[in-house]
């Protein structure tokens, strides 16, 4: 395993991440209140996914972790997406 120094995130970075997350929350509330019909659910999920990615990358320090951990996390989210897709295929075509 590669010998790496633990990264220390600055307070400025943490504040910046929080502000971005709050802006995205505001956007999702405003966008959903506009009643975009069929796109509402998709939009809400896309915005939530962006927020989750930001939390994983910066607050949970994945950006500064070794690549094995990043591949594991990516793989698990991919697996989860596949499970959801298969559930819906099964549900609609049975």
């Amino acid at each position: 395993m590669k010998n790496h120094e633990n990264h220390i995130s600055s307070d400025t970075l943490n504040w910046t991440v929080l502000v971005i997350l709050l802006i995205l929350t505001t956007i999702s509330i405003l966008a959903i209140k506009m009643h975009l019909g069929a796109f509402t659910v998709a939009l809400a999920l896309i915005l939530a996914s962006i927020k989750v990615t930001i939390v994983l990358t910066y607050f949970m320090h994945l950006k500064f972790e070794n690549s094995l951990l990043r591949i594991m996390v990516g793989g698990v989210f991919l697996l989860f997406a596949i499970v959801i897709a298969i559930t819906f295929i099964d549900y609609y075509f049975r």
Binding site: S28, I29, I32, L47, A48, K51, V55
Partner: peptide, 10 residues
């Protein structure tokens, strides 16, 4: 982050 839009917003 996922619960909030799914339960409260949509």
């Amino acid at each position: 982050i996922f619960l909030f839009p799914l339960l409260y917003l949509i």
